[in-house]
């Protein structure tokens, strides 16, 4: 791969915008919902849901024939619910612990999904690689819609709808989510029943995961869910700011990742995640709250006899 030649490539702006927007809207929704998953120490569950929705999506796809359909959401939702039920069934009715129950549940469902794709691959236009790798690139093949004089592939609209509505829902339910995540007993006393909140969160996760599938592929969805929140957690002390920074992370990693992908010729999904990982590393080093460099600097200041000021005021 001749890097010199790569930098000479003029990146088609249209593709940059399309792919960037697709990834951004997806990442936005995931970042908001995923931040709460991180706060609740439920990253593993997020990973499980992201794998478990595959059979639902595949079945829905086999029925409607296109990825651009709300039926995929329903399929995903049902699949996610099934996963949750299986986990409960295994964990509560036998001596198997929760982490193993989650593992058994999501690997079975994922295997089922991959098998379905494999069996039907010849009959329908669904490539197993698309599922694993994401298929933002295929956006080009879809019919266009026009907005404000500009052209966009139609799926972009659904990405936008999912991303924005997920963000709005999180904003509306913010207080409930905050209290339930911080202090479930207090939440219960306010009538925000933990079991219900959990279910809603699982539902939201399944909802945003469907778009994420198409953007970055099944295996990297977890990145879109937790990298923004994890990165923001290292940079801020209050939840509203964390949610905002997570959104910023979504934007930067999407744009940066798409640019990387188009210039270097690597898979878009992987590039977005790597960009996100880069941002995470920056936060790890320089984050105002938890950054390594910042902490070392603080310690040096304290060592010099100055009043140690908490970085969090």
């Amino acid at each position: 791969m001749d890097l010199l030649a790569a930098t000479d490539i003029i990146i088609p702006t249209k593709l940059l915008v399309w792919f960037g927007l697709a990834c951004f809207f997806t990442a936005l929704g995931c970042s908001q919902v995923g931040t709460f998953l991180v706060m609740r120490k439920m990253s593993l569950v997020g990973d499980a849901i992201s794998h478990s929705v595959l059979p639902g999506i595949v079945l829905a796809f086999l029925v409607v024939g296109t990825l651009d359909s709300p039926w995929l959401l329903i399929g995903a939702g049902l699949s996610g619910v099934l996963a949750t039920l299986l986990i409960e069934l295994i964990h509560y009715r036998s001596r198997i612990k929760q982490d193993a129950a989650i593992g058994i549940s999501f690997t079975s469902l994922f295997a089922l999904g991959v098998l379905l794709i494999g069996l039907k691959a010849g009959k329908v236009d669904l490539d197993p690689d698309c599922v694993i790798f994401g298929q933002v690139e295929y956006l080009q093949g879809y019919p266009r819609v026009e907005w404000w004089g500009l052209e966009f592939p139609r799926p972009l609209v659904s990405f936008a709808v999912v991303g924005v509505s997920a963000t709005v829902v999180v904003a509306v339910l913010y207080r409930i989510l905050l209290v339930s995540s911080f202090d479930p007993s207090l939440a219960a006393s306010y009538g925000y029943f933990p079991a219900v909140v959990q279910l809603v969160l699982m539902g939201l996760t399944s909802f945003v995961v469907v778009s994420a599938f198409q953007a970055v592929g099944a295996i990297l969805v977890i990145a879109l869910l937790i990298l923004p929140g994890a990165t923001a957690y290292l940079c801020a002390n209050r939840l509203p700011m964390i949610l905002l920074l997570a959104g910023v992370h979504a934007l930067l990693s999407s744009v940066g990742g798409v640019w990387l992908a188009l210039s270097l010729g690597i898979n878009t999904g992987a590039a977005v995640v790597l960009a996100g990982g880069g941002l995470f590393t920056l936060a790890w080093l320089f984050g105002p709250v938890d950054g390594v460099v910042v902490r070392l600097w603080m310690r040096r200041r304290a060592g010099e006899g100055r009043e140690p000021v908490s970085a969090c005021e």
Partner: peptide, 12 residues
């Protein structure tokens, strides 16, 4: 989760 996804992305 962070390590899992970033490393995997690297592989892809």
């Amino acid at each position: 989760g962070v390590v899992l996804s970033v490393f995997f992305a690297g592989g892809i």
